[in-house]
Each structure stands twice: as C-alpha cells, then as structure tokens.
Design a protein around this nucleic acid. Structure first.
Lengths: 215, 215
DNA sequence: GCAAAAGTGTTCTATGTACACCCATGT
DNA sequence: ACATGGGTGTACATAGAACACTTTTGC
C-alpha cells in the first residue's frame, strides 16, 4: 500500500492515502493517476486502475465538506517513491501491518477506505484476471498462485490450481519457454490472456472468505 | 425503473433518473433517499439502497461540471409516483423497454448509469439475498424464483431452485403457512433470513451471464 | 376427473479436493 | 544421490442439471 506522511494539519505526521483535487476539465480517472504520481514521484502508469467508491460523510474532514472518489490501482515491481507536495515522506507498506497496534495511524476515514479496497481486491481475484496485475508480464503459475495465497491468506494445492487456471478459457497463454531460476524443475512461462472475467471463477473457500470480508 | 420527465433545458422533455444536489451536512445516503422522494412523491423508504458509482466526465452536463454519485434502490409493490419540483411527470418504466428504439430518450449519460445499475443488480442476485428486496415481506418460492427469471431472463427448474434456496443457510425462513391464491397446490410462505451474503452463491449460467453484462 | 402448480426422488454429469507419483534441475 | 519445486494421474466427495413422479388445490 502506497502511503504518504502528512506534513500539514489536520493529522500532521499521520500516514494517508495519496490524493487531491480534480482539476477543471479533468476526468476522475486522470485525476487519480496524476495525484498518485504527484505525491509519490511515481510516473509509471498502473497495471490496473478502477473506481472503488465515493466517501462523503459530512464530518469526515474537519476543515470542510469533502467528497472523495476513491480509486484502487495495482502495480508490480514496486518502484521506490519520493515525497511530493504537502508530504513529508512516501513509502510502501504491507497491508497486513496497517490497522493493527504496531502499524501507523491512518488519517481521516482512510482505514475504512483501505479496508474496502482490500476486500474489493480479494473479491475480484475470484472472478476476474486481476491477479495478473500483481505479477510481471511473463510469469510462472507458481508466481500467480502466490498472489492468491498472499491476498487470500490461504494455501492452495499447486496441482489443482494449475489445472483450474489452465482450464479457464483465455485466462493465461503459454509462452513455451521455461523460466531460468533457482532450485527445482524450471517452470513454464505464461502471460495474461484476453479474458477479463473468468468463467468459471476461482472460488475461494468459505474460510478464505471469512478471513477479510463481509463484502 | 423510476424516471422523471424533465421540464427544463437541457434535455427538456427527455426522461431522466431522479436526482439533485447534496445539502450541507447531509450524507450521500440521506440525499439519495430525499431526492428520490422529492421528485416523485414517494415517501416509503426503499427496501434496499446502495451506492453504484460516481460519474464525473467533464462534459457529461453541458451547463457545468457535475459529479453524480449514483445510488440503486429497490422497492416492491411500486406505488404510483407523482411529478415533483422541476419535473413534468414521473412514472415507472420497464427496464427492458429503455435503451431500445421504442423507448424514450434518456438525458445526459443516464443510459450508461442505468446499464451499470442493471448489471450490478444482476450480479448481486448471485451472491446476496437482494432478490428478497423485490418481493413482499412474506413470499412463496415461486415468487422468489420469478425475480431471478425476470432479472436474468432465464428459465429455472422449480425443483432445483427450491432445493438450492432451502439448502443455502439463512437465506429464507419457513413460516409454516400456506399462501391462499389461485389454481394449483397452495405454496408455503417464507420470509427473508438473516443471511446477506449467500454461500454457496446462486450461480447463473454462462448464457444468463452473457445476457447483460461484462461486469 | 383434469389441469396446474407445489413439492420429492433419482440419476447423471461436472467440478473441487486430496494425495500419490513422476520429471527436471541445482548442489 | 538427494532435495526442491514443476507437472500428471486418479479416486473420492460434493454440487448442479434434467426429468420422472407424487401431492394438493380450483374448476
């Protein structure tokens, strides 16, 4: 999770999701990309960007009435961010470490926004190819499986996962090359296929579903 | 679908989704309920209300920059609406009749909003108890099945549908009363159970999924 | 009695799960 | 040789689809 440390009141010193104001003539989508870049120094376009939802409770910002249209973006190979305007610092965080006792305090209603985002991603892994946005353009099935295992916090049977992915039409395409890596038999390389929606879905177990979300 | 006929430019004479501006100190949720009521004369609280998404393209309203936070509401027993402020008329429409040649022209980007709403509802029938918001507090399984059949535009096996609904934990609760109605064996009455998310889901077939939506 | 809708039983098939087993590589 | 991860095969359990059949009402 990409967070910035606030340099101004309110919530100075707290960490917050990067954001800002939409400009005249600018679409919401473009504003999300621009603001994320301005506050963190990241220029690469994200692999995936989608609207989450809009937060507009009257007292969510003590200064004035603010409506925040939250977007979720996905990036692999997380490049090092740098603090931008209005921010002391910018850094990547592990989602698991946020919201607990040890983690930093999040500003405004950003804990809720983050929780909604995590649950959205968990749910979308089931029925879309969103998992491929977490890995490089070329990847092994083990790398793809690790995405599901980490995000859902479960262990998946490698054999069954493999069959499931390969039997889902247009989910991945074989490159007929082997990855050159460490110990063990080299794995085949794949790239993301044309399918965006998956039929049938990669169903998470009852247990994995209870993990995070009421959805 | 509840629409109002616009009395002012732009799009005067066109039909539009009811809406308006959020007031100071008012939540988005409260504004959605209030505006729907003001423009149509309906006062009953909807059985279900949820945020759809926010539309903010720079030129979606020719007068000025407008961000619309769309909400979807569900009501059974559709009471007759009456035209309110800024509206010539208000009426219920069949969703299927909108968007085609015969239907009325919808204002602004409301065709897109409506399409997104229909797809949201279609998808949510699968994994939530949203279908129960379309029927009365007490209902037969045939009435519930008709919701799925109409919204998804499919035929479902009554026998299998019954088993599926009754085997899904906390989806419906039996009232041990029979409905008094027309021809055929009287059906048992049920009411909505405590479950909001359904496990396992009521999966629509590949065909029903292709019907409306890419999601 | 007959039509119509409610409800039960049963068979067949598809899909997920668990686990045994073989394959190819680095050390 | 052996540990490690990649990949295949297979038996079992579960869930959905299709359809025959019984039950209960109105006409």
């Amino acid at each position: 999770v990409l967070l910035v440390e606030r340099g101004e009141q309110p919530f100075a010193g707290c960490w917050a999701l990067p954001g800002g104001f939409v400009r005249p003539g600018e679409s919401l989508h473009a504003a999300a990309v621009r603001e994320a870049g301005e506050e963190t120094g990241l220029t690469l376009p994200p692999r995936h960007l989608e609207q989450l939802r809009t937060y507009g409770d009257p007292d969510r910002d003590p200064r004035m009435r603010v409506f925040s249209v939250a977007y979720v973006a996905m990036m692999p190979d997380l490049p090092a961010p740098s603090a931008g305007t209005d921010a002391n610092d910018a850094a990547w965080w592990v989602a698991e470490d946020l919201g607990g006792e040890d983690g930093p305090e999040l500003a405004f209603d950003h804990p809720q926004i983050l929780a909604d985002a995590v649950e959205r991603v968990r749910a979308k892994l089931e029925y879309t190819n969103l998992a491929t946005a977490f890995v490089g353009e070329e990847f092994t099935l083990s790398e793809l499986r690790r995405v599901y295992e980490v995000v859902w916090d479960v262990k998946l049977e490698p054999a069954n996962f493999r069959r499931k992915v390969l039997s889902t039409p247009a989910f991945v395409e074989a490159l007929h090359q082997t990855a050159s890596q460490g110990v063990g038999r080299p794995a085949q390389l794949y790239r993301s296929g044309p399918a965006v929606q998956l039929h049938p879905a990669m169903l998470r177990s009852e247990q994995a579903r209870a993990e995070g979300g009421r959805g």
